[in-house]
């Protein structure tokens, strides 16, 4: 009974998560070919042992070598990292005051505010990104508004630039930043701030010496929750970014669908995963520390 209970989800995940990933890894070692499917070598089970050794001999790290020589790829990785770092920073900048305001709001408002933050979560990601196209485009609402105000004479070019990508990331990932910071700030005992003031702190130093260090775990968690998915982001750069916006998710997509170079696409995926392992481990460690501090 228990065996069956374990076996079903176990094998499901093995078959549809682990095995596919191993296939990606294997194909990343293959060569591109004009065939269906478009890579070489292919191992036919019936051809026996010698076929297997031939097959293994044909695998190599050529695609990875290719990634390191063609500067498109490492530029794309670096640019993804840079965009993710900058966007995470701005998300923190926008998200922290909101989380802080929520945690200081009257108790009876908080469930409503919480729901208002979560509501966009449930709304289609695609639609939320799409909404900004109309706002940021040349004849968009933002330009219309600014020109009506008389702040600018000519429309600003925002859409299809990295700025639009930043705005899109901050907008769509804001709830991921707000929620962990809010939950850290909400747990903060008001009497700690009073104690700090009682011991001679001004409001500002009390914030800096007590509130900020005690919400650090939430800030770190929020930053990782934004940073990690942003690196592999595809929708935002392809809808809001321009031709100069290089992000690795977009490169992988194009490599696969436009160039039909499956081995290189697979190699890109493997490297992307290797890059992500570091922040993921750091994030896990932060969460662990959080749990220990609470337990």
């Amino acid at each position: 009974m228990k065996r069956l209970l374990i076996a079903v989800p176990y094998f499901w995940l093995l078959a549809l998560f682990l095995v596919p990933f191993l296939i990606v890894f294997k194909i990343s070692l293959s060569d591109v070919a004009l065939a269906r499917p478009p890579y070489f070598p292919q191992w036919q089970f019936e051809e026996g042992w010698s076929a297997l050794t031939d097959y293994l001999r044909a695998l190599d790290f050529e695609n990875f070598w290719f990634l390191s020589t063609d500067d498109l790829y490492w530029k794309a990785y670096l640019s993804s990292l840079r965009i993710a770092v900058v966007a995470t920073f701005f998300t923190l900048l926008v998200g922290f005051p909101i989380a802080y305001g929520m945690a200081r709001a009257p108790l009876e408002w908080r469930p409503t505010l919480m729901m208002l933050v979560i509501l966009p979560f449930w709304t289609s990601f695609l639609i939320r990104v799409y909404a900004w196209i109309g706002i940021l485009s040349g004849e968009g609402y933002l330009n219309q508004f600014l020109m009506w105000l008389g702040v600018i004479q000519d429309p600003l070019i925002i859409l299809n630039t990295n700025v639009a990508v930043y705005i899109g990331i901050v907008y769509t990932y804001l709830p991921f930043m707000i929620l962990p910071i809010y939950s850290a700030l909400e747990k903060l005992d008001e009497s700690l701030l009073e104690a700090a003031e009682d011991l001679g702190c001004s409001r500002f130093t009390a914030f800096w010496l007590v509130t900020f260090p005690l919400s650090k775990q939430g800030i770190i968690a929020g930053c990782f929750l934004v940073f990690i998915p942003t690196i592999g982001e595809f929708v935002i750069p392809s809808l809001l970014g321009g031709s100069s916006t290089l992000m690795i998710g977009k490169v992988l997509w194009e490599e696969f669908f436009n160039n039909r170079d499956w081995p290189v696409a697979s190699a890109v995926a493997v490297v992307l995963l290797l890059i992500l392992i570091i922040p993921i481990i750091l994030f896990q460690r932060n969460e662990q520390k959080n749990r220990e501090a609470e337990g």
Partner: peptide, 30 residues
């Protein structure tokens, strides 16, 4: 006179010890 300028100190019911600071840093805080 705001609380941080008063020659009055308070011991809180919850103790309000700063969880991120050591005992000596808590005492040295003021």
């Amino acid at each position: 006179v705001p609380p941080n300028k008063r020659a009055v100190n308070m011991m809180f019911q919850s103790y309000a010890l700063f969880p991120h600071l050591s005992i000596e840093d808590n005492i040295a805080f003021g």
